[in-house]
Amino acid sequence: MNGSPFSSSLTLGVGAVLVCGVAVLWLSAVRSVIRAISVQGIALGCVAVLLGVHLHDPALIATAAVVIVVKGVAIPMLLRHVTGGQPLARETRPLVNVPASLVVSAALIFLAFARTRGIAHFVGTTAGTLVPVGFATLLVGFFVLVARRRPIFQMIGLLLVDNGIALVAFLVTAGVPFLIELGVSLDVLLGVVVLGVLAVRLRTDFGDLDLDALQELHD
């Protein structure tokens, strides 16, 4: 890293993506968590804009615009709609409490940096050195998926995984084919929309939004 305006602003953007991911773990109010996800989507879009300007790649800038609209605005709106009736809902009984979650996330970030340095080195660009942050976001997303009970948090965990992967893809591959760019921006999106449909259906048919209610199928 040479301290140029490009690399320092890129680092800032990438860092913001990870910070929003960790924020999901210590915020318990659903409303603030959705806000964190929205900020993360916008930060991800900004990273793509920076890379697009740096590489003079108009297609990447267009993709970035799609990312900001979809992940910064549309998805958070969908999440608010899904939580509809309960604006003050919180995660009251997480499987892993907040302090422990933060310790685990620190360990996961350390792990990501330790294990993916090889790839970062292989890519060899300024952007490439930041690749471990993408993997760290991905792992934090996994942790949210297993450590939180509310269906809304599962959707958010999935989005974190998705944003982490998108970040890796943006940093690793400069000037990717159109198909891949589209995949990056719309990747797990459909899955999240389907989850939204299911969550609404659960609420209308069975009247609650807690995964504890979903423990009938087992051996």
Binding site: L145, P151, Q154, L158, G191, V194, L195, L198, R201, L202, D205, F206, L214, Q215, E216, L217
Partner: peptide, 10 residues
Amino acid sequence: SLEASWKYIV
């Protein structure tokens, strides 16, 4: 079946 499809998609 809703539980199964929830787990499936996640």
